[in-house]
Design a protein around this nucleic acid. Structure first.
Lengths: 225, 225
DNA sequence: CGGAAAACATACTACTGAGTATGACGTTAT
DNA sequence: ATAACGTCATACTCAGTAGTATGTTTTCCG
């Protein structure tokens, strides 16, 4: 899998195939990442100051810079966590058994579930796509962003592979496989742009969105019969 | 249609139903808007300084602030121009004659064509959706952003209406109409996120993208037969 | 218990970037 | 010609912010 190594000032930090230990509840790093995700979601990366994150934590800058050496690194951490949630859930489904239609259907629903349940992280992940670290960032940080984009690309390839398998069996139809997976993910990611969790009826809303958007996504690559 | 009134320091400024006179070639305002769109696309709103736009123009701040009283207003102008391009092209198709399948097909292709031909403006329009003017902006500016979002909503309704008409005739199938139009537009907007115009084979690439993504979009709401 | 290291908070620095005040230059109307 | 106005450039102000340097408290271990 992807093994990303970052020099971490404090604590040990290892990224295996599964969820990051950084995310364990009670960890100081986890609290920081959580607060950062919240702020990044509400105001975007550029318009979020480290002080904003510190405020959300009820702390000060010092706390954050003790664990993360820059704002960009903190963003990367949030992004990585968001992608880890998705990869850990989708990877087994993609490589598992079963016919392609069933597999893709499961992937769509789980992906949507993740979008709605972890929306703060998912919006940060989407921001990563539009991330412009062109200016005012070190070349080293740009390298890390490339690694994150590779991870994203791999995630998309999981969908692409299932699509290709289904096309060979005649259950899916599309021309360019890359376009097919992009279209499916475009639909699946869409709710992240507008979904706001309600206090009441929240779960009912979620299941409706999951059902309907997964149906739309499946339909977009379905073979006509 | 939407009549937006902004106090403009110099020159007269009227927004009718059609393309803004601001965009006429030779106009000083048009050059500013063009440069701003380019910068906003490459670096995003927050990471684009007025000086950046001025540099692109080969001018200085003074020029820009002579025509636009704030950075936000300049963004609004770019956004408005982008939406005007889309509305002027799609509105006649949506309300025109013909069966829903043909109409939606035409709308999809024209929309995609606009995405690829005016990508600088379209990316700014997409940024508008994720715009967070929550902090450090006047309530008056937030009002204007709402107007822009209304315009976006109206654009989406053009697709929704055609979809509804098609569902009544049994040629389209979906559950929630709003979700249907969102899915279609999600696919149609997707190329904006990754398309980079090539020097060679540019037109061939475009037509391929247009054909395949419109097919995917149509398919996502197609009735199974 | 005591000393070291981790885990912060406080108080800075240095810089960017939005917006303004003002002046210079050209054009047009009278 | 000159007054007025439109069109900019120059030179500022000032608030916000990333990052650092250093002090202070708590925890942990021998």
């Amino acid at each position: 899998m992807f093994s990303v190594n970052v020099e971490i000032p404090a604590c040990e930090y290892v990224r295996g195939g599964q969820l990051n230990d950084v995310t364990e509840v009670g960890s100081a790093r986890a609290a920081i990442v959580e607060a950062a995700a919240k702020c990044f979601m509400h105001a975007g990366y550029s318009d979020t100051s480290i002080d904003d994150v510190a405020d959300d934590l009820g702390a000060t800058k010092g706390r954050i810079y003790h664990y993360y050496r820059s704002k960009a690194e903190l963003f990367f951490e949030v992004h990585r966590h968001g992608m880890a949630i998705n990869l850990d859930a989708i990877e087994p489904l993609a490589t598992g058994a079963g016919d392609p239609v069933e597999r893709l259907n499961a992937m769509c629903k789980v992906h949507l579930r993740n979008m709605l349940d972890h929306i703060v992280y998912q919006r940060v992940v989407l921001q990563g796509v539009e991330m412009h670290l062109s200016s005012s960032t070190t070349p080293k940080q740009r390298e890390k962003l490339k690694v994150l984009m590779k991870e994203r690309e791999y995630y998309e390839s999981l969908f692409r592979d299932v699509l290709l398998e289904g096309r060979e069996q005649g259950v899916f139809a599309f021309d360019n496989p890359s376009f097919g997976s992009k279209a499916v993910l475009a639909i699946l990611n869409n709710p992240v742009l507008w979904y706001k969790p309600r206090k009441t009826q929240s779960e009912k809303e979620k299941t409706q969105i999951i059902e309907e958007f997964s149906a739309l996504a499946m339909q977009s690559v379905a073979a006509k019969r």
